[in-house]
Amino acid sequence: MNHGLLPGKVVLITGASSGIGAAAAKVFAQEGATVVLAARREERLAELVDVLRDKGAEASYIVSDVSVAENAARAVDFTVSTYGRLDAAFNNAGIGGDRTPLHLMSDDVYDTIMDANVRGLWNCLRYEIAAMLENGAGSIVNNSSVGGLVAIPTAAPYVASKHAVVGFTRAAADEYAKQGIRVNAVAPGTTRSEITADWFGRNPGLEDMVNSMTPQGRTAEPEEIAAAAAWLLSDRCPFLTGTVLPVDGGFVNQ
């Protein structure tokens, strides 16, 4: 018998080709889940699925840009047609953005961030919830950010998009609680990834400055965010919905 957090659960993970999403695929599989990975980069997805299968996990992938509604629908349909149901979803797909003063931010930057972080989530929630209503139950975790809880200077569209993730989480949790669907969110602090590596590489000293603002004094590993998401998705917290869990080394509590 598997005593992990997610034994037998069929879980869809978006943005699964790198960073927190790829870490979630490994963590969820270790916790007993069957995982379906969705992202835009097929080579990365195929490599990750091979790794998971080599370790005995049940895993599949579908190439999907969830900012396009039809692609989000296909990801959910693929999951249900392959495994018979959708038990849980980790809506992780999203992007960051360069730091620019608000009055200098272009329409293109705003549109790109909002499409990825807000429209993508909107698309996923619609189709995931519809599938879970067929089951009579389900659990969803959305990936927000500490930027969804506090202000971050020179990142206005990103901050707005992550506040929107919080709003969607709370609204969906309230709307579907009586139908057996829980909706929560994680709000990561600075987390090691390709994006943050590039960001820190272009801004010497920035990582030390950010870490000095975090009580634990370090950057999170993506597996730490994934572990929190796994718990929220699991049956270990059945009375928890509509919450946004900071996973930030104490940053927002200062």
Results as ranks from 00 to 15, higher is better:
Met1Cys: 13
Leu6Phe: 03
Pro7Leu: 01
Lys9Arg: 03
Val10Phe: 10
Leu12Gln: 05
Thr14His: 00
Ala16Phe: 07
Ser17Cys: 04
Ser18Met: 10
Ser18Trp: 13
Gly21Ile: 00
Ala22Glu: 02
Ala22Asn: 03
Ala24Lys: 09
Ala24Val: 10
Ala25Ser: 02
Glu31Leu: 00
Val35Cys: 09
Val35Pro: 01
Ala38Asp: 00
Glu43Leu: 06
Arg44Ala: 12
Arg44Thr: 09
Leu45Cys: 12
Val51Phe: 13
Val51Leu: 14
Val51Gln: 15
Leu52Gln: 11
Leu52Gly: 03
Lys55Ser: 12
Ser60Gln: 15
Ser60Met: 14
Tyr61Ile: 07
Ser64Val: 01
Ser64Pro: 00
Val68Gln: 05
Ala73His: 14
Ala73Gln: 15
Arg74Ala: 09
Phe78Asn: 01
Phe78Leu: 02
Thr82Leu: 14
Arg85Cys: 05
Asp87Gln: 06
Asp87Glu: 06
Ala88Arg: 02
Ala88Asn: 03
Ala89Thr: 11
Phe90Thr: 06
Phe90Met: 03
Asn91Leu: 04
Asn92Arg: 00
Ala93Trp: 07
Gly94Asn: 06
Gly94Met: 03
Ile95Trp: 10
Gly97Tyr: 01
Pro101Lys: 05
Leu102Glu: 15
His103Pro: 08
Leu104Val: 13
Met105Thr: 08
Ser106Val: 11
Asp107Leu: 12
Asp107Cys: 14
Asp108Thr: 09
Asp108Pro: 13
Val109Asp: 15
Tyr110Gly: 11
Ile113Cys: 06
Met114Asn: 11
Asp115Ser: 11
Asp115Leu: 09
Ala116Gln: 08
Gly120Lys: 04
Gly120His: 07
Leu121Gly: 11
Trp122Ser: 14
Trp122His: 14
Asn123Gln: 13
Asn123Glu: 13
Leu125Phe: 10
Glu128Tyr: 08
Glu128Cys: 10
Glu128Phe: 10
Glu128His: 14
Ala130Arg: 11
Asn135Ser: 09
Asn135Lys: 13
Asn135His: 10
Gly138Ser: 12
Ile140Asn: 07
Val141Glu: 06
Asn142Thr: 05
Ser144Lys: 02
Ser144Phe: 06
Ser144Ala: 10
Val146Gln: 08
Val150Gln: 00
Ala151Ser: 01
Ile152Ala: 13
Pro153Trp: 14
Ala155Ser: 08
Ala155Arg: 12
Pro157Lys: 02
Tyr158Asn: 09
Val159Glu: 08
Val159Cys: 07
Lys162Thr: 01
His163Ser: 14
Val165Ala: 00
Ala171Ser: 08
Ala172Asn: 12
Tyr176Met: 09
Gly180Gln: 07
Ile181Gln: 07
Arg182Trp: 08
Asn184Tyr: 06
Ala187Tyr: 01
Pro188Thr: 09
Gly189Leu: 01
Thr190Cys: 12
Thr191Tyr: 02
Arg192Cys: 12
Glu194Ile: 14
Ile195His: 12
Thr196Cys: 04
Trp199Asn: 13
Gly201Lys: 05
Pro204Gln: 04
Pro204Lys: 04
Pro204Ala: 09
Met209Ile: 15
Pro215His: 06
Gln216Ala: 12
Gln216Asp: 15
Gly217Lys: 06
Gly217Met: 05
Arg218Gly: 05
Thr219Cys: 04
Ile225Leu: 10
Ala226Phe: 07
Ala227Pro: 05
Arg236Asp: 15
Cys237His: 11
Pro238Ser: 02
Phe239Tyr: 06
Phe239Arg: 06
Thr241Lys: 05
Val244Arg: 07
Pro246Arg: 10
Pro246Leu: 07
Pro246Tyr: 03
Val252Gln: 02
